[in-house]
Nucleic acid binder design. Structure first.
Lengths: 220, 220
DNA sequence: TGCATATTTGCAGAGTGTGCAACGAACTGT
DNA sequence: ACAGTTCGTTGCACACTCTGCAAATATGCA
């Protein structure tokens, strides 16, 4: 399910025949997503109705709800963004950076990878940033996945600080997730303000000294 | 408008006649809020309809929307929670704690003060914690007020670190707000798990060493 | 070609939220 | 106490989101 083109020597490779059905479905979904984002940027998200999106995408309103569970999902994407195994492994093994920073970098990579089209990624982020309603819906998605994220952070904590008690590890994992998400919100805004050349992940390293300073009690 | 009972020597004091109209309005609002929270805890928030709340509160559905702009607002309270002047002054002047920690303490106090009824505060927090939809709506409220919160943090930064450039201060203020809100989310959950004796603000000081550790790069 | 399966669509219905106008209760001065 | 003003309540119509169901349509496969 994850292979792409798999050009094996034998012409009839194993994966991705990509039947007509699947292709049309993917295209329809993509067209709908783009229509939703474009209309949102043009008219403001709360002025965009499902009917408008459907007219632009060439589907009926009822079909829209076969693809997306809500109007917001057309912009946000419906699945919760989850790191794959190698991303988790890199996060757990990362040294020389704080737990929060490492987690933020991983999530930035997950987001970036989930939307290969840079321009669309940027547009979506802009819309999301300008629309509290969408930001809230996005938060909801993340809140629902919070326990799973915390589980990933625990893997790192168990590896780097095995002396930590069970209850403490639980709390610190949840804390790291919440703090990283908060910081990412601001960093994403900073990324939007930039020219879009620097990848989000590198911005994070630039921003993090500030995070350290803001959480540090002055010694004086 | 802000005075309470003001028993001046002369019987006819200046403030708060509290006419019958105002009293009934306050009572109706309170009854509706309590009905919404109780029903949410009993049936789960998404099973609660406006009609149910209205039946319990003894008002018509149309009247509900005269009090609250949305179903969620009945639980969350409609105004954005804002610190008063003395709270801001204390925050700006607080020494020996990090910016994020000081801001978190201030917000905890604002929340606590906004809901004098401890039991109701706890119930609302429980419901909010169990319902991603409500947590998201709450986030939305805060997101809308984010710029104002950042302005308050800037007052502190300008006082404690005047060498900071304008753009940097802007960014760090926004960052402090986001991080504090993230951390508060977890702390509030910890407070819920406790017996409710310790005030939220004191819990924050207990939790903060963890925040410092999680954002600190290991020296090794 | 013809059958099995997946997708699209319309329709009815529940629920949220808003503007408008009528109705009723509370405040005002006399 | 009374008439007039003001404010809160309610019902009604309407737009919009979202769901279940069943009919119509398109695709996949032998």
């Amino acid at each position: 399910m994850e292979h792409e083109g798999a050009r094996a020597p034998d012409g009839a490779s194993v994966a991705k025949p990509e039947g007509l059905r699947e292709r049309k479905r993917r295209e329809t979904r993509e067209a709908t997503r783009r229509a939703a984002i474009a209309l949102g940027l043009e008219h403001g998200w709360d002025a965009v109705t499902v009917e408008m999106i459907c007219d632009a995408a060439g589907i009926s309103p009822r079909t829209f709800y076969n693809y997306f569970p809500s109007r917001e999902a057309a912009v946000l994407g419906e699945g919760k963004p989850m790191p794959n195994e190698s991303q988790v492994a890199a996060f757990v093994a990362a040294r020389g950076v704080s737990d929060v920073e490492a987690f933020a970098v991983m999530m930035a990579e997950v987001w970036t990878a989930a939307e290969p089209d840079r321009e669309l990624f940027r547009q979506r982020r802009t819309l999301l940033d300008a629309t509290p309603e969408l930001a809230a819906a996005n938060m909801m998605r993340i809140t629902e996945a919070r326990a799973q994220y915390a589980g990933i952070v625990r893997q790192r904590l168990d590896a780097t600080r095995p002396s930590l008690g069970d209850a403490d590890a639980e709390i610190e994992a949840a804390m790291a997730v919440s703090i990283a998400m908060g910081a990412l919100q601001v960093m994403a805004r900073g990324w939007l303000a930039g020219d879009g050349e620097a990848p989000l992940a590198s911005l994070i390293h630039d921003y993090f000294p500030r995070v350290r300073r803001l959480t540090q009690a002055p010694s004086a």
